[in-house]
């Protein structure tokens, strides 16, 4: 199943920028930014991330969610829990350095990688080898 990406950052601008950058090498991949609180503050929003994830699931995609700082992790885990087990099976919190991970993950998705391959790519391990 094809994989789409959600970029969850504390900053809306950062999420948009990362999505833009990652999209450069992965034109066929759907990358949805979900940054900030939704009302202009720095932070993360369960509602924004949830809407982005649901949108991709409804398009029939598996979803890798990439995050920046610690509390974004908690937001994403809350979103995945609330999906229920059936839909949650198609969603993965892909941990890694956000910029490098998003580029690597989007390329993995572009070349047909499944959710596991994309999540592995998001760790951007080769950059630190």
């Amino acid at each position: 199943m094809s994989v789409g990406l959600v970029i969850c950052s504390h900053s809306a601008k950062l999420a948009e920028g990362v999505a833009e950058l990652a999209g450069q090498m992965a034109k066929a991949v759907t990358i949805v930014p979900a940054g900030g609180t939704g009302d202009g503050r720095i932070g993360t929003s369960v509602e924004l991330v949830s809407a982005a994830v649901e949108k991709l699931l409804d398009e029939g995609l598996d979803v890798a969610v990439l995050t920046d700082l610690g509390s974004a992790t908690m937001t994403v885990e809350s979103v995945i829990e609330a999906l229920g087990p059936d839909r949650a099976a198609h969603v993965r919190h892909a941990e890694g350095p956000l910029v490098e991970g998003a580029v690597a993950a989007s390329v993995a998705a572009q070349i047909g990688g499944d959710l596991t391959a994309v999540a592995l790519a998001a760790q951007a391990k080769e950059l630190f080898a």
Binding site: T37, I42, G43, G70, S71, M74
Partner: peptide, 9 residues
Amino acid sequence: STVGGAAGP
């Protein structure tokens, strides 16, 4: 759903 920091989750 309303707190955009770690405290919400």
